[in-house]
Simulated assay, not measured.
Amino acid sequence: MRDRLLQLIAFLILAGFVGVLFWRVPRVDLGFLFFITLAAAGYDFFLYNRRRR
């Protein structure tokens, strides 16, 4: 349970960092890159937890 909580906190920190960076540099191409980064991290987060069960 603690591992999942730490993973969630790390994902939220990554999302916050990417969100602030996109807010300060609002470009469409960077937006796509940030979306792909968050999607890959979210996919890894959910895939890793499913495989362990």
Rank of each mutant, 00 (worst) to 15 (best):
M1E: 13
M1D: 11
M1H: 12
M1K: 13
D3H: 13
R4N: 06
L5S: 11
L5D: 12
L5C: 09
L6S: 14
Q7F: 05
L8C: 09
I9L: 14
I9K: 08
I9D: 07
I9Q: 08
A10G: 11
A10T: 12
F11A: 01
F11T: 02
F11L: 15
F11I: 04
I13M: 14
I13H: 05
I13Q: 09
L14E: 04
A15C: 11
F17Q: 05
F17N: 08
F17H: 05
V18M: 03
V18E: 01
G19V: 07
V20Q: 09
L21S: 13
W23M: 14
W23Q: 15
R24H: 07
R24G: 02
V25Q: 08
V28D: 04
L30N: 04
F32H: 01
F32K: 01
F32M: 04
F32T: 03
L33A: 14
L33F: 06
F34P: 00
F34Y: 06
F35M: 06
F35C: 03
F35N: 02
I36G: 02
I36R: 01
I36F: 03
T37D: 00
L38H: 02
A39G: 07
A39I: 03
A41D: 00
Y43V: 09
D44Y: 10
F45Y: 08
F46Y: 14
F46S: 08
F46T: 14
L47A: 15
L47M: 14
Y48L: 08
Y48K: 14
R50C: 04
R50P: 02
R51H: 05
R52M: 09
R52L: 13
R53V: 06
R53D: 14
R53G: 11
